[in-house]
Amino acid sequence: MATNVTKDGAAPDPGPDPAPDEDPVVQLRGVGKLYGNIRALEGIDLAVRPGRVTCVLGDNGAGKSTLIKIISGLHQHDEGEYLVDGKPVRLNTPRDALNLGIATVYQDLATVPLMPVWRNFFLGSELTRGPWPVRRLDIQRMKRITGEELSAMGIHLDNLEQPIGTLSGGQRQSVAIARAVHFGARVLILDEPTAALGVKQSGVVLKYIAAARERGLGVIFITHNPHHAYMVGDHFAVLRLGALELNAAREDVSLEELTNHMAGGTELAALKHELAQVRGVDVDELPEEVTAPSS
């Protein structure tokens, strides 16, 4: 996919998808999840293809977290099918998902703030050298690989010895993305990576999402921000109360329509009708539909 990244960190319009019929790596068919009498998800259809960014949007309580837990192997689905490379699977642990090339980068990033960047890159998967029982960390090799992998993603850090906690939020997210790519991820799930970041740092993260797509990964970008999603997304799924309200390719939905679905345009239209019955409320001054805010 021929998507470039601008120097200011903003990801450009990805354009039309050149291979829309490529077989998905991960596919959900009619997936549902129950917690006792509570239905968290119902009838979820989703396909994640190589070299494409699938954006999953929704407000709090929409079911995004439950969806992440199912795809990442933390929870099992109760209804429907979960397929990887076209074969039905039931994942028992996140390790099962990792073995299939499905990696999740959570908001807390699973990093140790006071450890150097290179130690965090290999955290839990350290390289060693020498014979047993006197094996020791292969520090130079880990530093070299960390630098090479970060550079391959377009991430340039002056000092790999600096504590990862001294990096900006966007840089830490970028290191976590590069780490997942190095350890064999084919599908990368990003849990609200821009939620706590400012505009500039969000641009940094969006740039590396585009870079992961360039390397052929299927990316699931979980977000509540339709503007961030539309900058890098190839496909959009909007969850509301555990069901898909929108499931559309980029060429079939505009930013205004995506924002309208995300903001709950249907419910707001119903609310406007209810307010019309209340004396003293001038509904004529209210918009007919929710539109994207002006830039």
Rank of each mutant, 00 (worst) to 15 (best):
Y230Q: 06
A196C: 10
S65Y: 07
G86Q: 09
G30R: 06
P193D: 02
A152N: 13
G242A: 11
P12Y: 01
V84L: 04
F183W: 07
V181G: 00
V53T: 05
F183H: 09
A152G: 12
F121Y: 15
L239S: 05
P88D: 14
P16C: 05
T104A: 12
L217C: 04
G58Y: 00
Y208P: 00
L275N: 11
N225Q: 10
G216Q: 09
V105E: 04
H273R: 14
G165W: 05
R135H: 03
T146I: 08
L275G: 11
R29A: 08
Q277R: 15
R90E: 14
L67A: 06
K69A: 10
L98D: 03
A276E: 15
V105M: 04
L190I: 03
L286A: 10
A237V: 15
D23G: 10
V26H: 00
H156G: 08
A196W: 08
G15F: 01
Q140F: 06
N260S: 14
T128I: 09
E192C: 07
R119L: 06
V112A: 15
A292D: 05
A103M: 00
Y82G: 01
R129T: 15
L244V: 14
M115Q: 14
A11Q: 01
L190T: 00
M142L: 12
L197V: 09
G170C: 02
R119Y: 06
V175Y: 01
Q27V: 02
V26L: 09
H261V: 11
G265A: 09
A237Q: 13
R29E: 12
V283Q: 11
I189G: 00
R95T: 14
F221V: 08
D234I: 03
L258S: 04
I177Y: 00
R215M: 12
R29L: 14
G61S: 09
K69Y: 04
A276M: 07
A276L: 05
K64C: 07
I177H: 00
P24V: 00
I177R: 00
G61W: 10
G198E: 07
G264Y: 10
S65R: 10
L258Y: 04
E274C: 09
E288R: 13
E22R: 14
R213Q: 14
G184I: 06
S65T: 15
Q76D: 13
Y230C: 06
V205M: 06
D191M: 04
H182S: 05
V25E: 01
S294A: 15
K200V: 13
L67V: 09
A292G: 03
G58S: 09
A237W: 04
D8T: 11
T259S: 08
T3G: 02
P12A: 11
W132A: 12
L246E: 03
K33D: 02
G265W: 04
L271S: 11
D284I: 05
V84D: 02
Y82T: 13
F221N: 06
